[in-house]
Simulated scan of single mutants.
Amino acid sequence: MSLLLPIEKRNAVLNRMAELLEQERATIKTVNQQDLNNYSGDDLAMEKRLLVDDTKIDGMILSLQQLFTQEDPVGKVRFDFTHDNGLKIYNKTAAFGSILIIYESRPDVTVEAGGIAFKSGNKILLKGGKESLQSNLKIVALWHQALKENEVDTKWVEYLNYNREETQAFLERPTQKVDLIVPRGGENLINFVKKHATCPVIVSGRGNNFVYVNAEADLDKALAIIINGKTSNISVCNALDKVLIDTNLDNWEVFAQKVVSELQQKNVMVLGDETISKTTNIPQIESDSVWYEEFLDYKIVIGTTNSDQDAIDKINKYCGGHSASIITKNDSIAQEFMENVDTAAVYQNASTRFTDGGQFGLGGELAISTDKLHQRGPIGLQHLVTNKWYIYGDGQIR
């Protein structure tokens, strides 16, 4: 297997894979139905991630088409310097080598993350969850068809059909070279990988995202953003779980009651801190530990705060480091909030649901990193590279 495929080959495979997904659309949905029929769990978010319908397939195809049009991220000059002695020194982007992606229940990751890793010159090892096995095997078969038709070794995209014990053994003693591991899923999966991995890990961590309604908020916008963040898709890491309302807001009690009513109409279980509970007559949280939780369900917690600083402190204490939004007409307050909240994405007057590689113009994402190294937030094509120094001399010695 050659160390780096020419960009023309990589693009040809991506283009063919997009065509195959369209051609095999009906078969993919039929195979996915087997996985759905076999799924006996009661995790609504897991089931939503497992489903492959026409909209999901459209998204897979679009992600490949976007990747096809993007520039090659490998070989870009990031820095250049000519030494006094004539040495020409360049720092260029380089592929990692082999990337292992471990994920739960989302067959679209087999396309989207696989495509990003492949376009950036990397070999991909895919380890999906047992609940999506048939869907994943079908999609990997299409990857292999696209590779073979372009005379590229199928080892560039491999599926690891391992159980938990086999996965642990592979993480601790890999039977082939792995340069980077990206776990995508719940905290149990992430902790499992971090505990056993023997190479670098980029954590695609939990959401637990916050919206802070400041005293100078546009309340119509605030309500729409809260409803969208919580109810448009409960199964994703950019969904909303916590709301903080500034008690300096005029008639904040009326607004809080309106938020609670609208959420309850959408079948969301609404819990409150002591103040919100008394004001709106909803159940009070049993302990502050619930502020740490990511729900991935029709469930939300609303609390109060009496200052911008208190809101910032609370978000930094409890959030997952993913996304936070401030609703305010005051741009200077928004800027201070955005600079001091410690999350990968910070918003003013917009839904946290936009934290997504496709929405950010990256053409999809490998993962959304809540780590600070080596990339934070959505990891797109241009981030899935390391770097390398090239030095050209003419006999120089030091």
Score class of each variant (00 low, 15 high):
K92W: 05
L244R: 14
V13N: 06
N32F: 03
G115L: 13
S235T: 05
F210R: 12
L14C: 06
D394P: 01
V254R: 12
Y39C: 03
W156V: 01
F81C: 09
D288V: 13
K127T: 08
M338T: 01
P283D: 12
W252G: 02
H196Y: 14
H196D: 00
N188I: 06
P378F: 11
E187Y: 06
L362E: 05
N85M: 10
Q34C: 04
E112H: 02
V301E: 03
A256I: 10
S232Q: 15
Q34L: 14
P283H: 08
Q70L: 12
A324T: 09
K314S: 10
N37M: 02
M46I: 05
Q34D: 11
L263K: 09
L240D: 05
Q264G: 01
W252P: 02
T167M: 02
Y162F: 15
A141N: 11
F96S: 00
K48P: 00
E47R: 15
S120M: 12
E294K: 13
G186L: 07
V301T: 10
Q264C: 08
H322F: 06
G129Y: 04
D179F: 05
G321S: 12
Q168N: 01
Q359A: 15
N11Y: 07
F81D: 09
V203P: 02
S40L: 15
D297G: 02
D54Q: 05
Q375T: 04
Q396G: 04
E286T: 11
D43T: 02
I101W: 00
I116E: 02
F81V: 01
V182I: 14
P378V: 09
Q264N: 07
D310M: 15
L189E: 07
F170M: 03
G128Y: 14
N238E: 12
D356V: 10
N316F: 13
G114Q: 08
D72L: 04
P6T: 10
R10A: 03
T370C: 07
S105K: 09
I89L: 11
K242H: 15
